[in-house]
Design a protein around this nucleic acid. Sequence first.
DNA 1: ATGACCGCTGGAAGCGGA
Length: 286
Amino acid sequence: MKIATFNINNINKRLRNLLHWLEREKPDVVCLQELKTEQHGFPADSLRSAGYEAVWVGERSWNGVAILAHEQLPILTRSGLPGDDHDHQARYVEAAVRGVLIACVYLPNGNPQPGPKFTYKLGWFERLIVHANGLMTAGVPVVLAGDYNVVPTPQDIYPTRSLDKNALVQPASREAFQRLLNQGWTDALRRMHPSGPLWTFWDYKFDRWQANKGMRLDHLLLSPQLTDLLIDADVDRWVRGEDNASDHAPAWIELDSQCSPENAGNARAALGDFPSLRSKRRLAAR
DNA sequence: ATGACCGCTGGAAGCGGA
């Protein structure tokens, strides 16, 4: 079961890029960020023609998140991050696919720093940490995938001092990411590639792609039930080199066949103690 | 590095992104 995350940077502007990647790499599940379309503008029909069903949360102009699943309808479990009824930015969607709970996150960028945007970023992160702790405690297989807008360590960015004040590399941002990991999540890309560059983003400016000066901002975090099933993980760098590319490339993981369609029953059994999912599945089955 | 990008809104420049 291949699960990917991709900041698409406008799904309609880059629909051809997205469809080309889906056709070539055939991920089973895809988390998308920065749709930059309202709810009714999501290209559900084009994706269905390509074999993907979807759940999504749109927003005019900015943000927007989606979960795609190949030949499966994701079972929506949440369309927003709990903890602040006044926050209406479309940055979180969660769904069950083939017995795995998929959380698609788009953390605020936080620049300029310091300032209200950085405060919002850190507050959003705290809400994510609280919610993720609940998912961890529930004991179900979970993947937290998305654009975290955090460079976790100095080895996750090309050598430079020019970004020392950037929100992406601040100690407070990194500390929050580490605190999330400390709940027991596994950073899947780093597990498979313990050292060296693993860029998922290259700035449009300053020929950063041509110079291969990037950073690692997109992460897939695994709950303990899934860590032993991890058999591969990487970044589809070729996508960044295409015409009309997003400034991010897709990052992905491959989980062992225990979570494949053929053996979905095993993973479903692991979801048995999660009442909200059980009831949603019953509803979906009617 | 006071940076040369890209897309959105609105219909010009300014904002957001990272």
